[in-house]
Design a protein around this nucleic acid. Structure first.
Length: 414
DNA sequence: TCTGGGGTCCTAGGACCC
DNA sequence: TCTGGGGTCCTAGGACCC
């Protein structure tokens, strides 16, 4: 499968707001990902409204949106929570019109504005999407021509050169801040300049990844549509603490909770883990504090998805790396060396009950938590009489779960 | 006081083999 | 003076993505 010629198309849709980061907030000087403590004074002074993230709500709206978009092609790659690729190859009709239809449909049924980018490769579709998102703020014909839905594959070569020449390299999918700066330092500022570079020397001076990106920008497809996502190769859960944590007991609770989460995700993909990685660290932002960061990787006794067995490894690891006297700011657990649970090495029965576990116990735990909510059944270590532990993330300004909790349903006034 | 939480891929270099 | 020439595998770290 390729999108190498003009009859094949790849589409990228994206539901982030047309104007990222909200104009009013930006006018107040709030930057993307600014820490709350730096801007909280604006809440009183300027009426800034801050909200905690609500992953249940996002996940549900994402499912609805991606399901609707998926109706428009037999092949869909879900790329992230708010973004997907569709293969338009062989579909009848005009792609720009299809893009507008998708936008209208998602807006009507989910209420979320989306942007659509169309190109002959995934990288070009992503670029088209970026142009669709930002065109409204650009002068002249740009906005009329490209806003919200942009198809780069129908442009004349002159017009395409104009667009490439007007777009900075850092907007390209795969060019981050580091590569972007190195390119700029080498005098390469626009996409127009980037696509004309010599490929062998580009590969030598940068990497095969950047070479692939440039080939994609030239219309040569190097990235496949991955509509059958494989199992994850690592599963992680980590959090900054809501307040500094000093004791091994609190760290144990946090690591226990994180281990429970990764084990659940592992079972959801029918996997087993052969290694587990635990890390704890102080806050690098608190220069006045003594710093400490340590991690350890521990093989599990056998490839497992059993929370109890994984806890044995993670807590043993934690005890090895814990040092008293530090203000810990973050802890995490990562599962590695993952494999499907269909390939299991047979074992001699030497009286270890976990070796005989058939997965029914964990299956029951997962079923209960699905039905009655996360945390209904957890490890005893993670429990405490006090509801809010200092290590837990704070959720003071969470929005209601409008679409997933009966109690949070919006009320219509009469 | 307070600073996101996940992932992926690639490369260089070290350890080890014959 | 001059100290081989292939390989493989693993890991850490860097870069990117949303």
């Amino acid at each position: 499968m390729s999108w190498g010629n003009a009859t094949d198309y790849c589409l990228n849709t994206n539901s982030r707001p047309l104007i990222p980061n909200n104009l009013e907030a930006r006018a107040l000087g709030v930057s993307m990902a600014a820490p709350w403590f730096q801007i909280r004074h604006l809440a009183e002074e300027a009426g800034l409204i801050a909200l905690s993230s609500n992953y249940a709500l996002y996940g549900d709206l994402s499912d609805r949106m991606l399901t609707i978009i998926g109706e428009y092609s037999p092949r869909q790659e879900i790329y992230s929570i708010d973004e997907c690729f569709l293969d338009f190859q062989g579909l009848p009709g005009i792609n720009v019109e299809r893009g507008h239809a998708i936008r209208a449909w998602v807006l009507q049924w989910v209420g979320i504005p989306t942007c659509v980018g169309i190109g002959s490769t995934k990288t070009l579709a992503k670029l088209a999407n970026h142009i669709a998102k930002t065109a409204e703020r650009k002068p002249g014909s740009y906005a009329r021509e490209f806003a919200r839905v942009c198809d780069l594959s129908v442009l004349s070569s002159d017009r395409r050169d104009e667009v490439f020449g007007a777009t900075e390299v850092k907007e390209v999918w795969g060019v981050g801040p580091r590569i972007g700066k190195r390119l700029n330092d080498a005098g390469v500022r626009t996409i127009g300049e980037l696509v004309n570079l010599d490929l062998p020397s580009l590969r030598q001076q940068f990497s095969v990844t950047l070479e692939r990106t440039v080939r994609e920008l030239r219309g040569v497809s190097c990235l496949q549509l991955e509509d059958m996502p494989g199992a994850r190769q690592q599963i992680m859960c980590s959090r900054f603490f809501g307040a500094p944590v000093l004791t091994l007991q609190e760290l144990t609770q946090a690591i226990t909770a994180h281990t429970g989460r990764v084990a659940e995700k592992l079972r959801a993909q029918q996997g087993l883990a052969g290694q587990l990685h635990v890390f704890i660290r102080t806050s690098p932002f608190r220069k006045q504090d003594k710093q400490y960061a340590q991690a350890i990787t521990i093989p599990t006794a056998r490839p497992t998805a059993h929370t109890g067995e994984l806890l044995n490894s993670s807590l043993a690891g934690l005890r090895k790396i814990y040092r008293p006297g530090y203000k810990y700011a973050k802890a995490g657990v990562m599962l590695m060396d993952l494999r499907p649970n269909t390939c299991v090495q047979g074992e001699l029965d030497i009286g270890d009950p976990l070796a005989r576990d058939t997965g029914q116990l964990m299956g029951a735990v997962d079923a209960l938590n699905r039905r009655f909510g996360r945390g209904t059944v957890t490890s005893g270590i993670a429990r405490s009489s006090i509801a809010q532990q200092p290590w837990q993330m704070r959720h003071e300004r969470c929005t209601p779960c409008y679409t997933t909790e009966w109690a949070d349903l919006a009320l219509a006034r009469t």
